[in-house]
Simulated scan of single mutants.
Amino acid sequence: MHKKLPIVISVTSGKGGVGKTNISINLSYCLQKLGNRVLILDADLGLANVDVLLGLTPEYNIFHLLNQGVSLSKILLQTNYGFQILPAASGVTEMLSLSTGQKLELLEAMDYLEDKIDYLIVDTGAGINDNVIYFNLAVQERLLILTPEPTSLTDAYALIKVLKNKHNIQKFRVIVNMAKTEVEAKNVFKKLYAACDHFLSSISLDLVGIIPHDITVKKSVARQVPFCHEQPQAPATKAMQEIARKINNWQAAEQLDGNIKFFWKKLLFQE
């Protein structure tokens, strides 16, 4: 039995190289294994690589819908792993310059998705540029990827600070990736928590899970296969499965007028 409303989650980070896209893919794989219908929006504009990590070559992206009349059903790319991809490898500036008519046309096309998916996973770029902020403002849940590296910590804090101070976003979920030990992972989370608690008011940080450093992950990436599919017994897979089970218990906000359409309305009509 499927959820009444889809949940829209960004997978985001303050810096590159933290495994964000790999987590998006493997989280999607694990969520579909739990019986969910999952779609990844590749929102790392200019450096889109969800398709690359899966060895796929999309023929269309979302702008073909607006510029060439290609239907959304043709743009959606089905993977061999039970989830779909929505390629959107064009600049946000194009989205911002759409006419009101085009925006309404896109919203109408999104009706096609409303009752067809349970999770929309938005794989953002890294950093605090406009593209990253733009997508993080539109989603309902923000999943921040952190690693034990000091630069990851400082850049994650910078992203939280911008979203809090400029846009009053207060709630963040955190995954610590590539941790050598659980103690190391919890320490880096505690440092982020302490910085937010000291310098920013009313920030909520929830540690969703810890993914251990695992050599099998790199091997699966090289073979362009989700590690959760190729290495079902690996420590990283076990951790990702546990994270997916937690996320599967999250509830969509019932007051939203259709979560997928709500996402696109916020995305397209931001001030």
Rank of each mutant, 00 (worst) to 15 (best):
K3D: 10
P6I: 01
I7H: 04
S10R: 05
G14C: 04
G17R: 09
K20H: 01
I23G: 00
I23V: 13
S24F: 07
I25T: 05
N26L: 08
L27T: 02
N36R: 08
N36H: 12
V38Y: 02
I40R: 02
L41T: 00
D42G: 06
A43N: 04
D44R: 09
D44P: 03
L45G: 00
L47A: 13
A48T: 09
N49Y: 13
D51L: 05
V52Y: 12
L53E: 15
L53H: 13
G55T: 04
E59I: 11
E59R: 14
I62C: 09
Q68C: 05
G69K: 12
V70R: 09
S73Q: 15
K74G: 00
K74I: 00
L77Y: 12
F83Q: 08
V92T: 04
L98N: 10
L107P: 00
E108G: 05
A109E: 14
E114A: 00
D118R: 00
V122Y: 02
G125Y: 04
G125I: 07
V132F: 08
Y134A: 00
L137Q: 09
A138L: 04
V139C: 07
R142I: 13
T154Y: 01
Y157P: 02
A158I: 05
I160S: 10
K166V: 03
Q170R: 15
F172Y: 12
V183M: 13
N187S: 13
V188D: 04
V188H: 09
K190E: 15
A194D: 15
A194G: 05
C196M: 06
F199Y: 14
S202R: 13
L205H: 09
L207Y: 06
V208L: 11
G209E: 07
I211T: 06
H213G: 03
H213D: 12
H213W: 09
K218P: 05
K218W: 08
K218V: 10
K219W: 01
V221F: 02
Q224I: 10
V225F: 07
P226A: 09
P226I: 03
F227Q: 01
F227E: 01
Q231D: 04
P235N: 11
P235F: 09
T237Y: 03
Q241K: 12
Q241L: 12
A244C: 10
I247L: 15
W250S: 11
E254C: 06
D257K: 15
G258K: 11
I260D: 10
I260W: 00
W264N: 03
K265Q: 13
L267S: 06
